[in-house]
Write a protein that binds this DNA or RNA. Structure first.
Lengths: 95, 95
DNA sequence: GACTTGTGTCACGTGATGCGTTACATTCAT
DNA sequence: ATGAATGTAACGCATCACGTGACACAAGTC
């Protein structure tokens, strides 16, 4: 399941929140209460959604903070899973 | 919803994974491939579950990495939500 | 041409976090 | 008393979220 690279949440913000409302990155950054650089890093996938940012997004876009965090988790886990075979972990519970 | 402080995931590891199987922290740390200190910090709530740790847990205990991450998200969000009123965020989408 | 706006990116700093090792303490069982 | 299990502290390293200030490049407007 989930074979494809999930998009980083920044893409979703841009495509589902900013573009439909015709809001510029600068406007959004000001409204969210973060610097333009911080939002730019998120939108371009160079930073993730922190819990605090999830709350900010939930206020600004009247959504749930959980949904933003879940998207970030999907992204993070997809990357972490790729190292699964490199991790030296022993089973403790029988399958 | 979710009025009560959610437990940090370390408690769940201890109560649902280590104690039922009678596994010591040292054994578990060795099996997980991390230092005793790292696992201690998690079990005592002084560190969170990283994506990599979620994958380690999923291997050792034959569970899903997602479930561990979700518990961590619940815990992180509960703390972040408490700052909601301190954040200066403007609405961009009408309610 | 000059001026503004939007965007990407650079450097640098701060504080938090995940992980490691080493070391010291306590508790408990043999 | 010896050793195992655990909690915790110091120190280091790398990464990350966030900030400021600055530079560059588009596109539009006066």
């Amino acid at each position: 399941m989930r074979m494809h690279n999930p998009p980083h949440p920044g893409e979703i913000i841009r495509e589902l929140c900013l573009e439909p409302l015709g809001i510029s990155m600068n406007e959004a950054a000001r409204a969210l209460g973060v610097s333009r650089k911080t939002l730019s890093a998120i939108l371009n996938g160079r930073a993730g959604i922190s819990p605090q940012m999830a709350v900010r997004l939930s206020i600004a876009f009247d959504t749930s903070a959980e949904s933003w965090m879940n998207q970030q988790v999907q992204f993070d886990l997809w990357n972490a899973e790729r190292q699964r075979k490199q991790l030296k972990v022993e089973r403790l519970a029988a399958a």
